[in-house]
Amino acid sequence: MAVATAGAVNAPKKSRVKDRQASMYPIWLLYPAAAIYGILFLLPTITSLYYSLTRWTLFNSEFIGFDNFIQFFQEPFLYQALINTVIFAFVTSGLKVVLGLALAVLLTSPLIARDFLRSVVFFPVLVSTVGVGITFTILMHPTEGVINETLAMIGIDGPGWLVDRNLALYSVALVDVWRGVGLATVIYIAGIVSIPADYYEASRIDGATRWQQFRHITLPLVRPAMFTVIILSFIGGLRLFDLIWTMTKGGPGFSSDVMASVVYKQYQSGFYGLSTAGNVVLFVLIAVLAVPLNMFLNRKVVTR
């Protein structure tokens, strides 16, 4: 009897819940947000797929198929930007993952002035990138900059950080790490402090060393935070524009150009089609490198 009524009542109840959901959480509440996002972000993203196939200048646009993309792989300076973007993303995210973890371990151990140090490491995240770029351009001046003058005092002949073709990209990458490692550190710290203290206590009773504790407790349990840091800094590295632009403008020559700076340069010179193609290449790069990375790392978290 009870089972039968429950079954009979269940079906209409379910649809009533749905109706009530629809009436209490109506879709029209989403419309303003969806309009702004759809018109100003999604729509241009979709039309960019068409514009990237055109020769498009101030005055007219003409359909030219895949010529813009072919140009990206044939012109050495465009191709180099593509390679530079990938190198930059790998170098900066790699350094942020490692240094961020080191700093987080340091800043979660009992220290004097620990909170102050945490703030100090995090503060560059909040500072104007343009300001950081200008400051480090001057600190990295090849002959009179503070960095090279300090190196000279201990007898090292400092390199031409931003004027050396082979080094400029890596110098900017170092500054990007300086600016962004604080965010990686706080994400790691949030992960580390959520590890139960019992684990460390139990392992200490069993005679584990600090290194063993790090290797077998901290490292495995901080993995979700580490994945977040990898994804965030990798995508940030692929998209970076402001720091490159204020420090080197892609120079010397085209040696530190990345996709985002190429997009801006082509836009400035009026090659709108080529600029948009650059944008599409950047989408594809992120889709090809970052999305699978995201899925792979998330799956690992779930199965564990």
């Binding site: 100003l40 729509l43 241009p44 993203t45 985002a260 992120i286």
Partner: peptide, 18 residues
């Protein structure tokens, strides 16, 4: 779409035209 907005760079020139 939320994930796309988080990860994808905006398409600049089409946005300006629009």
């Amino acid at each position: 779409f939320i994930l796309a907005g988080l990860m994808m760079p905006p398409a600049v020139v089409p946005t300006i035209t629009l």
